[in-house]
Design a binder for these strands. Structure first.
Lengths: 112, 112
DNA sequence: TTATATACATAATTTTATTAGGTATATATA
DNA sequence: TATATATACCTAATAAAATTATGTATATAA
């Protein structure tokens, strides 16, 4: 696990990237997928995740589809057209930001 | 300028990196240096910078040296031994974090 | 003389996350 | 069978970290 401050500000970008690459995902599934993909280095907390998902739905970035699995509820989220646009913007911006940070922190030799 | 959320959590790392690479710097100088190095893409706000510098001094990571320049005051900050250790840790952790984000967001083809 | 740059600082507010707590079903294990 | 763990949702209280606004004051450029 990284020190908590590092993950700040990346939540929306992560959510949008995962949802853009899949048809639909539910909240718990997102936490497990991120945990799996990062080898446990990033573990999203529910207290941050759910309010963010709700906010993104309210903004028209995501839509939901509630499904009953046995007696349990699953709320699937998927990106709207606006969500796809937002996802591209967020990911591109983050890619640019990473380049800036790599340069600023002198993390790798500049190529080209 | 990046959307403000992205910069969150990187402030201490940036400060420590700049101060580790120079003998000493003062607050305003740090803001200008970051602005210059990032082509204006990252502009530290004073409301975030000064309280953070004070906290880092209180933690023994930085020491200060107040200098009169003309009739104006400058408060130079430099890293202590603990600060150098902390700087290395922070920068390494951030480098690792970036690698994780690059993979998670599929930003570059994986090499090796 | 007036705006901008330099240089410090804090207070009120906002944003964003953590921590803690709540509800409930399904499954594995002792 | 009892109990712990995993699945699956959610919110409220709190904390952390930043923005925005404000304040003080000198130096310099227009």
């Amino acid at each position: 696990m990284y020190s908590s401050e590092l993950i700040k500000g990346t939540l929306k970008t992560i959510i949008l990237k995962l949802l853009s690459d899949s048809d639909k995902m539910y909240g718990y599934e997102i936490t497990q997928k991120v945990k799996e993909l990062t080898g446990g280095k990033i573990q999203l907390t529910e207290g941050a995740l759910y309010p963010t998902l709700h906010a993104m739905e309210a903004q028209g970035i995501l839509t939901t589809d509630v499904v009953n699995v046995g007696n349990r509820i699953r709320k699937y989220y998927s990106v709207t057209d606006l969500g796809k646009k937002t996802a591209n913007e967020k990911v591109s911006e983050y890619a640019d930001f990473i380049d800036t940070m790599i340069f600023l922190l002198d993390l790798k030799p500049k190529v080209g």
